[in-house]
Design a protein around this nucleic acid. Structure first.
Length: 496
RNA sequence: GUCUCCUUCGUCUAGUGGUUAGGACAACGGGUUUUCAUCCCGUCAACGGGGGUUCAAUUCCCCCAGGAGAUGCCA
């Protein structure tokens, strides 16, 4: 091998649940690493002590496991560049920050939060050309510093961004991106007063120390690209390759967020999206193979993924298309596999016990082929099969009446129907269907005029799985009770 | 306000200096069907605008507009 092997990382901060945008970044990094026989690293950026939570960290692990994104190095698995959790690398950042101060590339700043807040407010109000820190502490004398230290003020460390010149970095997708140094954040904080690094510092140090070759992250980071290059240069380190990924937006073109619908991967899991469907769909926003092929196994993606095919423009996350993918993946499952995927949803609804009895298992197995082509998400099974597990209320009269049919004819139809239904299992379905059809024609009704009242009486809805299948699953006994009850209700209504 | 990035059907996208601008989802219509769904068939639908360059621009260049992002002791 001629070139240095690829090392990429996904470096989320555990401050919230993993969301669609995040896992898309993870996936692209992961696929790129695999396609290059490279290394995929997970790094936890928990430098914001007030916002990082254990729950979010656990959610990160759960989500990556669920999506089957395995990291070669990182927390839980270790690796040669550990630790991979930034809060455990505290001293490293201290050391490098001190180095920068010593070499004059950074300086301590003693400004209070209040002063900075006021400054920002004034600048915004005045629509000032200068926005951001005013470099107040950039040129403090040693004496002034000593004075502040004496007062016990904990300083932050700020980068001394050059006032002149410009900085360029190369992006695999965008090409060269240049920014004048005076437009770069004016002296951003590198080390906070609690001693923890900011993203900028930790990120650059760790990417260097961990030998990251390609930085693939969302485009929202583009503006800080030059800043990071400045940092690499301040340390005298090589700059990795950049590849800024297009963002994932909601329907309104804004950054995807909760108000667009579910965004946490955990929610998709709970609703019954399959990980392979989610992976497949998410991979197709911002990337395509040839514009035609759109079903990819994960192995194919690991093989065929290339940076060049990534789109530059942001993409809208289309929930409808995800549903379509999910339905396709559900239908591709074997009945047995689908049965076991569905069982937790049935158990949660209280329809079956977990683990379920042999009798329940039998019923689920019989149900699966019937619901399979009707499911968009696994949880749909609950409402779809509720009538099988719970006693339903007798539907209201008008719901039981087919179009253009009176209560009288409907009662007659239902009565005529009962002896036929009782034959279920004894005669063939075709035979039964024939006989129900003739009940309709004898009365000059459409065939639906016979099926629909039965369907509504038995399932409680005008929409259900095929009638005979539904009855078989329900059992003849319960079916008869519901039919008789419907007839009684209708008859009573007639008298009024 | 300033800086940066982006711009092909409603959405995800393919594509080329000369194409009937292709596919998928959605929508709509039709067929199959005991409802729904599946499945099949079809319809609608796009190169943001203005300048160039060129015999020829959706494609190359410039400007504008629109959108997004950044501008934190958050990442």
């Amino acid at each position: 091998m001629l070139s240095m092997s690829v090392r990429v990382r996904y470096a989320p901060s555990p401050t919230g649940l993993q969301h669609i945008g995040g896992v898309r970044t993870a996936l692209f990094n992961y696929f790129f690493a695999r396609s290059q026989q490279g290394t995929f690293i997970l790094r936890v950026e928990d430098t914001d002590q007030s916002r990082s939570t254990d729950e979010a960290l656990q959610d990160l692990y759960d989500t990556l496991h669920w999506l089957n994104i395995r990291w070669d190095e990182g927390p839980l698995v270790g690796g040669p560049c550990g630790p991979y959790i930034q809060s455990q690398r505290f001293e490293i950042y201290q050391k490098y920050a001190a180095e920068l101060v010593e070499s004059g590339k950074a300086y301590p700043c003693y400004c209070s939060e209040e002063r900075l807040a006021n400054l920002r407010e004034e600048q915004a109000a005045a629509k000032s050309k200068e926005q951001g820190y005013d470099r107040h502490c950039r040129n403090l004398s040693a004496q002034q510093r000593a004075e502040f230290e004496h007062q016990g003020i904990k300083p932050v460390i700020r980068l001394k961004v050059p006032l002149e010149g410009s900085t360029t970095f190369h992006d695999v997708l965008m090409g060269d991106i240049t920014r004048k140094n005076r437009d770069v954040n004016p002296d951003p904080v590198l080390l906070k007063s609690d001693g923890f690094p900011t993203y900028h510092l930790a990120n650059v140090i760790d990417d260097h120390l961990m030998g990251i070759t390609h930085i693939m992250r969302a485009q929202e980071w583009i503006p800080s690209g030059p800043l990071h290059v400045l940092l690499y240069e301040a340390f005298g380190w090589d700059v990795p390759q950049y590849c800024h990924l297009p963002m994932v937006m909601g329907k309104d073109g804004q950054k995807l967020s909760k108000r667009h619908g579910s965004t946490a991967v955990r929610e998709f899991k709970e609703k019954g999206y399959l990980p392979e469907a989610l992976t497949n769909y998410v991979s197709m926003v911002g990337w395509s193979y040839d514009g035609v092929k759109e079903f990819f196994t994960r192995e194919e993606l690991e093989q065929v993924f290339t940076l060049e095919k990534i789109n530059k423009a942001p993409g809208v996350f289309d929930y409808k298309k995800l549903d379509w993918y999910n339905g396709m993946y559900i239908r591709a499952k074997s009945d047995a596999e689908l049965a076991s995927l569905l069982t937790p949803y049935l158990a949660k609804a209280g329809f079956v016990t977990e683990p379920c009895s042999a009798r329940q298992q039998e019923r689920i197995d019989a149900m699966v082929p019937i619901v399979k082509e009707r499911l968009k998400v696994l949880s749909d099974v609950v409402e779809m099969t509720r009538f099988l597990f719970e006693d339903i209320a007798c539907p209201p009269v008008d719901q039981m009446l087919p179009k253009n049919q009176t209560v009288e004819t409907t009662v007659q139809v239902l009565n005529a129907t009962i002896p036929v239904i009782k034959e279920l299992g004894k005669a063939s379905d075709e035979d039964l269907e024939q006989r129900l059809a003739s009940i309709a024609t004898e009365r000059n009704l459409k065939i639906n005029g016979v099926f629909m009242p039965i369907r509504v009486a038995v399932t409680g809805s005008t929409v259900s799985p095929p009638l005979f299948d539904s009855i078989r699953l329900l059992g003849l006994e319960t079916t008869m009770i519901r039919l008789e009850r419907a007839i009684t209700t209708l008859t009573q209504h007639m008298g009024k």
